[in-house]
């Protein structure tokens, strides 16, 4: 598994497609629900899936662990939302915290972790 993260608008998806020789057709765009389509190579916008989990009252990491080994060949892209102001809205606070926990969980499982900064990648694990 490869985990790719970075702030908003940093060019994470473009970086992934360019560096892994993939195209838009390989990308599953996560919605604010608890569904993932594992027929795609890239799971993009996992923070939306986390928001879906918050709304459903499920811990995202636990749901992801149920997928087991079927995630090992995936590239997961998450927006890092951990470094700003603590949101006023309790649901946004839960979202921010659950996204952090989920990234720690995925970072531990991933073979490679890459941070994208202004379109440039930095391998922090692998």
């Amino acid at each position: 598994m490869v985990l790719i993260f970075g702030g908003a608008y940093q060019g994470k998806l473009e970086y992934t497609l360019d560096n892994f020789g993939l195209s838009e057709g390989d990308v599953y765009r996560c919605g604010e629900n608890t569904e993932l389509d594992l027929s795609f190579k890239v799971l993009y916008g996992l923070e939306n899936f986390v928001m879906g989990c918050v709304k459903a009252g499920i811990e995202a990491g636990e749901l992801l662990s149920e997928y087991g080994d079927s995630l090992t060949d995936k590239i997961i892209i998450v927006t890092d939302i951990s470094q700003g102001i603590v949101p006023m809205d309790p649901k946004e606070r839960s979202w921010r915290e659950m996204t952090g926990r989920t990234m720690v969980y995925l970072g531990r499982r991933a073979d490679r972790v890459i941070r994208v900064f202004c379109g440039l990648g930095r391998e922090i694990k692998g």
Binding site: Y9, Q10, Q83, G84, R93, T99
Partner: peptide, 26 residues
Amino acid sequence: YSDARTFDRYTESYRRALALIDRTLA
């Protein structure tokens, strides 16, 4: 770029524009 919220249209346009400049310069 690491806030856990979507801002109003003005702020979001500004963040998107600054990120474009940052990526171009980087």
